[in-house]
Design a protein around this nucleic acid. Structure first.
Lengths: 209, 209, 209, 209
DNA sequence: CATGAATGAGTCTTCATTCAT
DNA sequence: TATGAATGAAGACTCATTCAT
């Protein structure tokens, strides 16, 4: 019993090693430029071992992107659904949740934010592709719902909720990407504060006075 | 002389063919997934000819990205430098200029916006890499200058100009990317209007009342 | 003109090199055990060159088997169709034609005689697979027609033409295979005489007295 | 002792499982296309276990082919040796024995009939290779002996016993292969009757009148 | 200059074999 | 003994780059 437990633990840790190395490399170099050999080396295992746990390179990639997207998606749906809460607060909550997701698992976040449908269109089945697209869309939809609520409740100006959600979403992604580059160059970490500043500006921009 | 002129013209047109095909393909499929064969076929020349004009695949890519970045950069520097003009108008002008750049040469724009330093850090020399980074930074700097002016002139609230420029810049990039995806799915073209809406929201968010 | 002609000749000779090496190796070691590297080495070219002329390993194999089978097939159809000729003579003619085919292009013959549908069922499209099967069947059918004619004309005993054609066909294949083994061991070449002896025995066995 | 007996029994049954699965798979898919994993799965044991009982994949294959060949060989030697029996009857007996061998253990038969020296020349030692060749030859030799007896006794025409044995042997192999293909396509089972028909024709062809 | 055939290093993937438990 | 995870050599195939014409 102890043995089988340990085996299970080891197997899971092996999978985790592969997933972690894969996520980090896919994020750093992109799908095409990352080789299975790279991932194996980073995980300190052999090439073959990866194929014990993942059917193929794109299977590994999909298995990284999908649950991450799914997790974030579920989180945002929950937050956006709290109709009783003030829309401004809900927007902040969405941003907080996304930042927390990013903070806890940056590689997963990057896979999500860097996801490019075009790369996958040749690799994944129609089903999987549509599923990923749906998840991506869902995140934006949640923001849209909250903004829409705010407009209806007269808290926000009469503006296009769709457009506004796009602005917020891409501002978030862009800021993270930008501040990370600065971080790499040894500069101070302004990620969280820049995000907060951006939210402040945008809320001010959409708020009804 | 007539002959050598024609030769020159032909040579230049040959180079243009390669550059145009390269830009379009690099944008559509990404650097790694684009093959020299692809580009040669699109340019209706032979593979070997590309190597007459470009040292290597990454040389071609660099030669596409650099002038595009440079061109946009110069444009923005000019606009941002018009200190006599109202900061809000200058911000709008920066956005207009960027949009015009995008509209006239979408492939060049995409090369710029999709440029990923990480991919090139292994391919390009330190010099070239730094140069590209500088150009990228310059664009943000111009926005920063304008916002800074606005803050000093008391037209904008006291906010971090750097942060604000990041917000504007990434909102632009994100909206283009997003609306292009929707365009591909056959939906109405909301690129320009979404951009305008976003600028409106942000200006409202940073304006001093 | 002279140049393009030479180029064409060189290209054809390159293809011939690959085909010849491929046929010889596929015959000697079987489809699975033969590697593209093997074939390239035998043809004294590089791996990549093979892929300039053939889409894949199984494409090369198919391109070797199909025309060979087709050629033999057509030959036998022609001979079997000569209804005015004595059935015994026609059987001999079929055997002669098959032997001539073998003698002129042993590798092609071996590809045909060693063809195993099971190997291909996973590699080839339904169309191609059916086509090969049809060709294989056709050869037997021609023998069957001749024997059938002989039975109807009262020259042969009342026996199953299908069964008899199978006997003749497999005797031929078996004898070639067997005598080649002996030949390899340095023994005298009895291929043709054994074939003739076998035909003699079988004709005697089916002839009506 | 009861325990060690059980252990022995289990061990033998384990080996049998491996051998049976191996024979079936080697026959169905060929040596190269059959994986150790396949065999282990079919035998419902683990990959490692196979290596407890067999040194390598080719060792397993050899250990399957050799005894099968040996068994058939011994059987035919016995029958062919019955000098007091009529040669025609002995030929029939040889065919019957071969058919019975095939009928009882088709996989073993196929291993024998599909055995291809060329594949093994790289894998097996000279000794083993020669041994297999000897066994293969022996079968033909037995037929040759019987036919030779028939010629001497004046029952058969003056023909080459070697050649005649080759004809008979290969007719048998060819017919089985051919009729099995037809069987797979759902057609009636004509294996035994075709064999009998073939023997009838050949005997008639070699009989002295 | 232009061509495109040829090259071979590099990529994904499979599988015989080993070995710690 | 039995297991099955791990290994890494080997194979099919791609593509940037070179070079003879």
């Amino acid at each position: 019993m102890g043995i089988s437990e340990r085996k299970l633990r080891e197997k899971e840790s092996r999978i985790k090693q592969i997933r972690d190395s894969g996520a980090a490399l896919f994020y750093k170099k992109g799908y095409v430029a990352t080789t299975i050999e790279d991932i194996a080396a980073a995980a300190e295992i052999s090439k073959g071992t990866i194929y014990l746990y993942f059917k193929s390179k794109d299977d590994l990639y999909y298995s990284l992107v999908e649950p991450s997207l799914d997790k974030l998606s579920k989180k945002l749906i929950k937050i956006a659904g709290m109709k009783e809460i003030d829309p401004e607060v809900r927007i902040k909550n969405v941003v907080d949740a996304t930042y927390e997701f990013y903070d806890k698992d940056p590689d997963a976040y990057h896979l999500v934010s860097r996801y490019e449908a075009s790369i996958f269109s040749n690799l994944l089945s129609r089903d999987k592709l549509d599923h990923l697209k749906d998840l991506m869309r869902s995140n934006l939809n949640q923001l849209e719902i909250v903004i829409s609520d705010g407009v209806i409740q007269g808290r926000f100006r009469k503006l296009d909720p769709r457009m506004t959600s796009i602005i917020i979403w891409n501002t978030f992604m862009g800021i993270i990407q930008f501040q990370e580059n600065r971080l790499e160059e040894g500069k101070t970490d302004y990620r969280r504060t820049t995000i907060d500043g951006a939210v402040e500006i945008i809320l001010r921009g959409i708020r009804k006075r």
